[in-house]
Structure formats: C-alpha cells, structure tokens
Nucleic acid binder design. Sequence first.
DNA 1: TAAAGCAACTAACACGTGTTAGCAAGTAGT
DNA 2: ACTACTTGCTAACACGTGTTAGTTGCTTTA
Lengths: 203, 203
Amino acid sequence: MLYLRFMARIKTDKNISRKDVIVTKAAILFREKGFKAASMRDLAEAVGVEAASLYNHIKSKTELLHELCFSVANRFLHKIDEIEAEPISAIEKVEKLLRFHINEMINHYEEVYVSDREWKHLADPYLSNFQNQRRIYRKRFAAIIEKGISNHEIKKIDAPTAVLIMLHAISGIESWHRSTQKISAEELEANMITILVGGLINK
Amino acid sequence: MLYLRFMARIKTDKNISRKDVIVTKAAILFREKGFKAASMRDLAEAVGVEAASLYNHIKSKTELLHELCFSVANRFLHKIDEIEAEPISAIEKVEKLLRFHINEMINHYEEVYVSDREWKHLADPYLSNFQNQRRIYRKRFAAIIEKGISNHEIKKIDAPTAVLIMLHAISGIESWHRSTQKISAEELEANMITILVGGLINK
DNA sequence: TAAAGCAACTAACACGTGTTAGCAAGTAGT
DNA sequence: ACTACTTGCTAACACGTGTTAGTTGCTTTA
C-alpha cells in the first residue's frame, strides 16, 4: 500500500522532550480558557497534531494539571527554604519573597497562573496534597511576618491576612500582562514593592 | 390514570421569584466548581428539581452568568458614581471604595467571586460589554489615585498598578471565607485598610 | 367547580468530551 | 537492508453536556 500523506511531528530541540512541549502549550491553553473549557482537541491543534497522538506522551489530561501545579509549588517551596535560612531581617525576607513571586509571575506567567486558579480541578490524592503544601507555605510566610511584628519592624496586623493580601495582590500581574500599555517589568516590580512593603513597615 | 408521585416545587417567599432562587444557587455552584464544571443537573439538584424544569424560569445557562456578572458590576458602578461626587480628599475616596469592595466581598461572596473569576465564559456581546465596564471602572479608580498623587496625599506610584493591587488583594478575602479559624469581619476590614491604605499614603 | 396558566415531570436529541485500539509511518541502531 | 522502537494517524466508544418537546400535575381565578 502506498501512502503519501504528511505526518506531523512535534518539533523538539535537545533537552526539550515532546512531553515538555505539550505541557507548555497546555499551560497557555489552560490559562486562556480554563482547565475544564480547554479540550484535548484544542491542545492537539496548538501542538500541531491529532488529539489521540498526545496520549503517546502523557497519561491523561489531569496529569498535565498535576505537572503544572506541582512544578510551580516546588519552586516556591525551595525558595522559602532558602530565604528562611538567610541571616537577614524579617522585612528583608518578606521583600525577597515578594520579589521572587513577582518575577515568577512575570516570567512564568502561564504556569503560575494556572497553578493558582485551576488547582481546584485536581483529583485526590493530588488535590489534598496540593492544598496541604499551600497551607504550609502560607503558614511559613505568616511566621516570617509574625517575627517582624514581634521585632517591631512590622505594624501590628494579623499576619495571615497580610499574607493573603500579598499573594493575591501579586496575582494581579495577570492584568498587567494583558494590558495594552504596560509599564516595564522593572517599574512594575518597584511599584508593587513600594505599596506592599510600604503597607507593612512600622512607620 | 392515577398518579401519586410527589412533585417538588421551588419554595419562595414573597418578593423572591423562583428565578432568584435559581440564580442564587447558581452563584454558589459556580463558585465551588467553576462555571464550566458546574452542570445544569448539579444546579437542579441544589434547587430540588429536575434539570429540564429550570428552563421554565431561565433561558440558558449563560443567562445565569450574565445576571450574576452584571448585577455585581452595576453595584460597583453606582458606588463609584456616588463616591466621585463627594467633597472629600482623594485618600478618603480610595478608602471608602476599598471598604465597599471589602464589604461586598464579605457579604455577597459568591456573586462577587463568580463575577470576578468566571466572566471569561460570557459570550459576546456580553463579554465585550463586561470588559468595557471593567476597563472604565478601573480607569476611574486610577483617576482618583492620580489626583491624590498630584495633591501629594499619595506616594508617587503608577496608578493603574495601584488599582490592580487593591482589587486583587481584596479578592483574597476568598481565602478568608474558606479558612477554618477566621478573624472577625471587622478585624479583616481593619487589617486590609491598614495595609493597603498604609501602602499608599505619602509618609 | 370549571377553566386557565404556571411549574413540574419524563424522554430524548444532538453534540462535545476524554480516551482506547489498532495500524501506518517515520527514525535509529546493527 | 533488516529490525526494533517511537510517534503519528483514523475510527470509534462511552459518557456527560445543554436544551427542547410534550405531558401531567398543582394553584389561582372566575
């Protein structure tokens, strides 16, 4: 039998597996449409392949979500490990952590956004696992702020509330990404630090 | 023919139409699961009725989303109309607006949350309409802040960035709602105002 | 009590979904 | 050139979706 049809292939450089290509495209799609609304056929089209072909590289749609959520979560956990160990003031730790969050949100927009908004669609045991990590992370962040309060570096406020404000404020970078007339990334970072750290400092 | 089956009815008090009951339950469901993931059969169960019966009261699933999104948007637009007209300082205007946002998020959690997160699933022309209203609202908010900057009431910052931080920070009240050991609503409001307004004020 | 209208029901349709089976076509090693 | 492996394809399934048609039951009005 003679076939002359053209068979697409997912392009890859060295060190980038075809699976990575798929995961990356998935992040873009999940951000645009939301996890539920993005179909495997949409994803296949973005990758340049038929839907069924994706399953040579991944196990399921939710696996894509796991990968995205946990890779992001791990980056933040490693960073807070690092920062906690540094011999600097509480307010400096907060600032460092904020700058990391801001830069992650600027440079790895799609993944971070998806991890933040779409984790609800994870299935157990991944779901509980993710929620746990999240809870723990926030507690550690709050502990840094508490320390700053008892040092009188930081205003007397409810630390968990402060954490919640910081984290959500940063997720607002989403709007910056979409806006037509953006200020530069550096200016954005500087402005956010000014307002957020300025709101914490005790005079 | 003799039928003895029980036919459920949606309970209503005076002034609350059956449609209102449906819309309210829809808000809860859309928040929990997301618009796409929440099915009409889920909604029917929450209301205590079969899925098809809902269509005696509503036109479509998306109509529910329209109603939610625009009722919330209108409340905010009316409020900013009101505040703009008041003869008070810029920083007082910002504080009033923030307090309104915070209270809306506390007291009408489900609707506000859905309007904030799920508007992407609106269909044109509602979609463009909503986006426009949102854009305009933010510009008006930013204009108040700009005024405060030129008055030297507020730090020299990028006003649109400040707006973005404020609005997203407030959406963090979502986490407060879900947390097990909540501080009181009054404390929450006070803390948020302290941090956010504190971050704006010029010394 | 009869008539009219509202609000529920059952049944079903058309469609889009994630995923699998089985096979063809490329690629790499000998 | 032969073989083994990877990666693509087509076809199809089972299921869940929003929604409509047609009918029965309940409530209100005359």
